[in-house]
């Protein structure tokens, strides 16, 4: 048991001042749950990878394009680290800059995904085309929803920081959103590898 946790357990005044380890524990647990969530969808995709039901298969992927948008998303993890670092140094202006940069990179990735989905739909791959289509759109769609939630949280934090209401002891704070954001990136590395690159 850490000293901080003992202090927290001692109650009284300290109780609600040092909540960071408590929140981080819960965040890690939640992310553990998210890994199973995506694991189940990735398994489904692997099962249906070649079940194209006469429709288009993995040949319609545009690897260079998706590689570029993946690179954008991965760079957003770097800006997230810089945002967190600036926040730890109590530099609110820098924090805000990097938060906005992260949100912008996330939004760019989302725009790329929307473009990609539109292309695929034109080429005849939709949710009801085949089990391949169903599992592709569900997996990448849920990942996109996670990115969108992240962008929303980042934007909200950037706005809050303007009025100086960005605290590190509230539910919405830079460290927790950072953990979530890195998770979303790591999952994308797996999805990009399994869905786009592994063409066996």
């Amino acid at each position: 048991m850490t000293d901080a946790a003992i202090d927290a357990a001692h109650g009284g005044h300290e109780e609600h001042h040092d909540v960071k380890p408590v929140r981080k524990t819960a965040m890690w647990v939640f992310l553990g749950s998210e890994f199973v969530f995506f694991g189940a969808m990735i398994s489904t995709f692997l099962l249906y990878r070649n079940t194209t039901n006469g429709g288009p298969g993995s040949e319609i992927f545009d690897i260079p394009f998706t590689s570029a948008s993946s690179f954008v998303l991965l760079m957003s993890s770097l800006t997230m680290v810089l945002a967190h670092n600036a926040f730890e140094n109590k530099d609110m202006r820098q924090t805000r800059v990097w938060l906005v940069a992260t949100a912008f990179l996330g939004a760019t990735f989302l725009a790329g995904q929307i473009f990609e989905f539109t292309e695929f739909i034109h080429e005849g791959l939709t949710l009801p085309t085949s089990p391949f289509g169903s599992s592709f759109y569900m997996l990448t769609g849920f990942h996109g929803i996670h990115v969108a939630v992240g962008v929303m949280l980042l934007t909200a934090m950037a706005i809050l920081s303007l009025s100086g209401r960005l605290y590190d002891d509230r539910g919405l704070n830079v460290e927790l959103v950072g953990l979530y954001w890195h998770f979303v990136d790591i999952i994308w590395i797996v999805i990009f590898t399994v869905v786009y690159l592994l063409q066996v």
Partner: peptide, 9 residues
């Protein structure tokens, strides 16, 4: 969607 539709695979 066709996750459980055996006719489509």
């Amino acid at each position: 969607a066709l996750f459980y539709a055996s006719a489509a695979g």
